[in-house]
Design a protein around this nucleic acid. Structure first.
Lengths: 118, 118
DNA sequence: CAGTATCCACAAGGATACTG
DNA sequence: CAGTATCCTTGTGGATACTG
């Protein structure tokens, strides 16, 4: 009954207890934050600046959006590009791994369209 | 700038601010809890009792699993069936809406298999 | 504009003990 | 076995103010 027995040690999610659901838990770990999937969905339409994302994702605070983008960047899903301009601008775009999330995000969105209404 | 302008009032998620991502936010709202998607994944393999789910989802406490199943039941994703036996037994199974989550869960799991390893 | 630094509030997970 | 009732701790979101 040792919890380590069938645990995937190469899994990014530290709460992945059993190998059976490791893929799922890893994906969930990356999209753990409330707004992460929505941000990914926004960026699937193309690169955006901070303000554009903030506008598209109505309801998120600047602080949290910043943290969310940081986490997504650390996870290798989002890439930051600082544009040397005045005023200061930063562009966020999905990496290949990020774009690869499209089927999952799409599937979730479609489910919501079908079942998520009262 | 009224936040209510383009908000889908028929969306189950109360934090769905704009119609654009309503489907996605609704789905996320339903799978909001840490273990919800994993529980759904387990039940995609067929109906299970409380103990069986608890065993399959290694790492979750009884309290939280109970709450998770309650929420999923309220959301119309899981169905409870009490089996009149001794000792007391309860069976959980996915509803049609729950089974309809399979593509999304599968897509997430596949992404994790591809990208979620260190 | 694009953040960072605090501070606060609340929700959710976990442990334990108890009940039908 | 299948929960429910507490209690505790942490994580996360949000507001505000400040910096480059």
């Amino acid at each position: 009954m040792s919890p380590e027995t069938d645990r995937r040690t190469d899994c990014l999610a530290d709460w992945c207890a059993d190998a059976e659901w490791c893929g799922l838990t890893c994906a969930l770990d990356v999209l753990d934050r409330k707004w992460s999937p929505v941000v990914v969905a926004v960026l699937l339409d193309g690169p955006r600046g901070f303000a554009a994302i903030s506008d598209a994702v109505d309801g998120v605070s600047g602080t949290v959006l910043s943290e969310t983008l940081d986490d997504l960047t650390d996870a290798g899903i989002v890439e930051r590009r600082t544009v040397s301009e005045r005023p200061h601008r930063v562009e966020y775009r999905l990496t290949a791994a990020g774009r690869d999330l499209e089927p999952a995000v799409e599937a979730l969105r479609e489910w919501g369209e079908r079942h998520g209404t009262a």
